[in-house]
Amino acid sequence: MSGVLYGLGLGPGDPELITLKTVRLIKEADVVAYPALVGGDSFARSIAQEFIPEDCIELSIEIPMAVARAPAQAAYDQGASTIAQYLSEGLNVVVLCEGDPFFYGSFMYLFARLSGEFTTEVIPGVTSISACAAAVAAPLSSRNEVLTILPAPLPTEELVARIGVSDSFAIMKVGRHLPKIKRMLDELGLTQYAHYIERASLPNQVVLPLEDAPEKAPYFSMILVTKGNDPWL
């Protein structure tokens, strides 16, 4: 019999935000796989490191961080091929994923390659948006309000159009796009409602009004805006 493939959501970074089910599956795993920077460390592994069995097989899948899709797709192809070999041998494989596996998660690319052939289970995790809202101590939306999730690399005109029809929104993958986002929100008159959060739930978490945000932002940063609505009214 083939092994089972598990996509495990680890949450935003604080190990205490990992679900009990995910902890159990990590501890029971034959193979623990995780994405990593090429030649670098794995953030996903660092979140779950205290739960990884000493006698398990570890598989680091190095993903190139480049605009071109081909190098990353090749890395997922190779990673999926290796995982398939372990599953075919009857070993259970867990893939560690920051946040939630199906919310901008790298696991979805392995899922697309393997789920048609092997039994696969996805365990959800706390999303970065939930962690950032908690860090800001502000509700994202209520009743019939519309929450929109926007990747910062989108063209400015598309961001403006989507913001115009949203009650609240989260801008993700801020990084080098922070100056563009700050200018845009200032021109829209929304800076006063915006919060900047980086590395939510981690010891080095930063939470600031957007106007006080630094000029450079790490990849794990986000901007939350609620347009001044009070969900308690």
Rank of each mutant, 00 (worst) to 15 (best):
P139K: 05
L210W: 10
V67C: 11
E28R: 15
K27D: 02
V38H: 08
Y109V: 09
D77N: 08
I57Y: 13
P139Q: 05
G116S: 10
P203Y: 10
E62D: 08
L150P: 10
P218T: 12
A29H: 02
G39P: 09
G189W: 07
A80Q: 06
L110N: 05
G40L: 14
L37W: 10
L20V: 15
L150R: 14
S81Y: 04
F111K: 08
G13V: 03
I163V: 14
F169V: 07
E62P: 01
S141D: 03
L208K: 15
L178N: 11
E54G: 11
S2E: 09
P203C: 11
S166Y: 09
L96D: 01
L190E: 10
T191W: 09
G79I: 01
R69A: 14
A161C: 07
Q205E: 12
T156R: 15
Y109W: 06
D230S: 12
E16T: 14
L37A: 15
Q78W: 05
S166N: 07
L59Y: 07
R199C: 04
A200Q: 08
E117L: 09
A33I: 00
P209H: 14
P71A: 11
D186V: 10
F102P: 12
I163H: 12
T82S: 02
R113W: 00
S46G: 03
A138Q: 14
T127C: 04
I223W: 06
M108Q: 09
L140G: 08
A44S: 07
V207H: 06
I63H: 03
S106E: 06
A68H: 09
K180A: 13
P218Y: 09
T148G: 03
A72E: 03
C132L: 06
V136R: 03
L202E: 01
F107P: 04
A112E: 15
H177V: 00
D212R: 15
D41N: 12
L147H: 11
W232S: 14
F102E: 09
N229C: 05
R24I: 00
S168G: 12
R69C: 02
A72P: 00
M184Y: 02
T156K: 15
Y34K: 04
L188N: 07
E187K: 15
V23F: 01
S201F: 03
E50W: 05
G79C: 04
N204P: 00
W232M: 13
S168Q: 02
F102V: 11
E121D: 00
E50T: 07
F118P: 01
R176T: 12
G125F: 00
V165E: 13
L96A: 02
D30Y: 04
V207Q: 01
P209L: 12
P35D: 02
P15E: 01
R176M: 11
I18L: 08
H177C: 12
P153T: 09
G189A: 06
V160N: 04
A48E: 01
L5M: 04
V122A: 07
E187G: 04
I47T: 02
I52S: 04
A134P: 02
D77C: 07
A75Q: 05
F118W: 05
R162K: 15
A138K: 13
R162A: 10
I163Q: 10
T148H: 10
A80Y: 03
V67Q: 11
D167I: 02
G228T: 07
N144Q: 12
N229P: 00
